[in-house]
Design a binder for these strands. Structure first.
Lengths: 350, 350
DNA sequence: ATAACTTATGGTTGCGCAATCATCTGTATG
DNA sequence: CATACAGATGATTGCGCAACCATAAGTTAT
């Protein structure tokens, strides 16, 4: 039993700022009858310690309820076992799926994650990064490829692995895991043209990657002789409301579109709801194309055509790339650039 | 041997495994022409340093690009400025809203958050807690009031503030911020009875709090003479699919219900989708009651009746309660128990 | 039998910082 | 004019751990 611990707690809780969970390597070492450093090894590199000693240490750890102090360990070893992850929001399934998968896989390798929610703002990203770098994370995951100058400078001088996710570009900071938003825009345009649509509209939020997709979409449409693409844009984040509002705006004008391309499934869902409210038939009166293929897209009625992206897979790919980099302590600067691709999903709505 | 130490440092900076982001308080102090401890004070308690010195230090910090090492700071001060937050998932808006609000407010006070995603499992909660306690968080936020024995023991011996959120109970570990799920169940029953419904069904996931609501609902219905409440239950987490499947199962039986009470808006949305697919009229053929009032509930077609809970508000309340506890360094053990309440939202669907 | 290893363990040191106590200056108090 | 006191700064120490080097005991090769 943790007689010592219980004892300490009772008494120390009154006197000083001694944290209650105060058992240290030394306490464990005393109980186990070995030196502190042997305890450290037993916990961190059990393969170099004899089975017999290992067993003694394990028992002692359980007895005193020892929990290693990672602040001290990190300070001494210069390894925090922390990964900083920056996303615009966790309210969208792509990002929350990615975060969950990433945290899961990193967790299995003994890394914990600290989340920074940037709200689609590079300024917020910059200030969060400043705070989080103080924890000396072992790696950093960012969303997108647009960052402030100070952010870039700090990342460079921190000297740790950096992942940019959800986009591709020509001059990544380090590791890149994403897909081409321009390719998505172009593919959506071709696909819908092929299905015979000619009057297009876009309902979108104004985040950087959505803008890229829209530009590519419009370019391709123009190239195929379709001009006059109406665009309704809202500030991020996207909710159903933007979708309903978007369709309302478009429907109040003459020259109504045949198909609406949405910057996310959430917006598309809003468009579907507004269409239902107006008694419009999908896709006869209005066709709708989403983006993201969130799990509910197939379950909506009518089922939503979309662009499939697998957030969890992106998270897993990031985790593997990072772990490989982190475990090759020798400077393995092999450039990593992963195109996660996308897939057009043709359902009822478009 | 203070001189030696300083000396060593000068020389070791070239020969050893010095991290790239290697500027320290001492470097800043040299540039500023003050002692290291003055730099520390300038950063942490600027009010005790003269304006002139403050300015010198600020310039020096900028010049060397100094970022304080919180591992070292935490080790020395026994304050990590970290809060651990455990939620079942971030894929549901209640939790993601709470997390975002909580992180925001704590961030403003200089605290960062580390997230643990438990997947509705007390075992996962236990193992995550073990790992995260190593970071010596200054506080811990948990979801629900059910925890393993080891979890409880570790929380007690850690001696830090603990918040249990999203539920109420009679023997909280420490701070409690939530609402009564039984009260919700009862209120929903009364409300729907009052609207004249008599044939009830429940589509639910099996998490602890949903089970509580269902029990209370059924109890109240029984008390009012309504028996034979059909329940369809799925394992968490909830998606639209469970809702569609739930309605399908209920519709395949004789004695179809008039109203379906769902354990979340997501499930309710699935029920609505399946109803639309089957051409059922809402609420004439089947009425639907959600839970959570996520932002899209009002935007759905038909608009979803639900139980409003404000995740962001819960997060904010937790943050205030915690910050107050954290800032009163003297053992302020005032019990905190906040009932966040809920509100029935009557829309079209039920 | 000696050298050359290998395996298991311990001693010492310093990571970067804040707590604590000490010092020094200048100003108010009687 | 001496004492007290507040304001500003510095010196020393140790937080808990892992890196590094040293040592002791056993093993194999020659």
């Amino acid at each position: 039993m943790p007689i010592n611990t219980a004892d300490n707690k009772d008494k120390s809780s009154r006197d000083q700022r001694h944290q209650a969970s105060g058992s240290t390597l030394i306490d464990v070492a005393k109980v186990a009858g070995v030196s502190p450093i042997t305890v450290s090894r037993a916990l961190n590199r059990p393969e170099v310690v004899s089975d017999q000693t290992l067993e003694k240490v394990r028992r002692a750890v359980a007895e005193v309820g020892y929990i290693p102090n990672m602040l001290a360990g990190g300070l001494a070893s210069k390894q925090s076992k922390l990964v900083a992850v920056f996303v615009p929001t966790i309210a969208h399934s792509l990002f929350s799926d990615m975060v969950q998968a990433l945290m899961d896989q990193l967790g299995e390798a003994g890394y914990q994650s600290i989340l920074g929610i940037t709200g689609y703002s590079v300024e917020k990203e910059e200030s969060l990064l400043g705070a989080i770098l103080g924890r000396r994370p072992d790696a950093i995951v960012l969303t997108g490829t647009e960052h402030s100058a100070l952010t870039r400078q700090r990342l460079a001088s921190s000297g740790i692995p950096v992942v940019e996710a959800w986009d591709l570009c020509d001059d990544p900071i380090d590791i890149l895991v994403g897909f081409s938003h321009r390719a998505v825009g172009k593919a959506v345009a071709s696909h819908l043209l092929e299905k015979g649509y000619r009057r297009f509209a876009v309902v979108s939020v104004s985040d950087a990657r959505a803008v890229k997709r829209n530009e590519a979409l419009v370019n391709e449409l123009n190239a195929q002789g379709v001009t006059d693409v109406r665009q309704v844009t809202f500030p991020a984040p996207a909710t159903l409301k933007e979708g309903r509002e978007g369709l309302s705006q478009l429907w109040s004008q003459e020259a109504r579109p045949e198909v609406i391309v949405c910057s996310s499934d959430t917006i598309a869902q809003g468009v579907l709801a507004e269409a239902a409210a107006r008694g419009l038939k999908i896709p006869e009166d209005i066709a709708v194309m989403g983006f993201g293929d969130m799990s509910s897209a197939a379950q909506l009625y009518p089922a939503l055509s979309s662009v499939r992206l697998d957030g969890a897979r992106v998270g897993a790919l990031i985790a593997s790339a990072l772990l490989q980099r982190l475990q090759n302590r020798d400077d393995d600067r092999t450039p990593v650039r992963i195109d996660t691709g996308f897939e057009l999903i043709d359902r009822v709505s478009a």
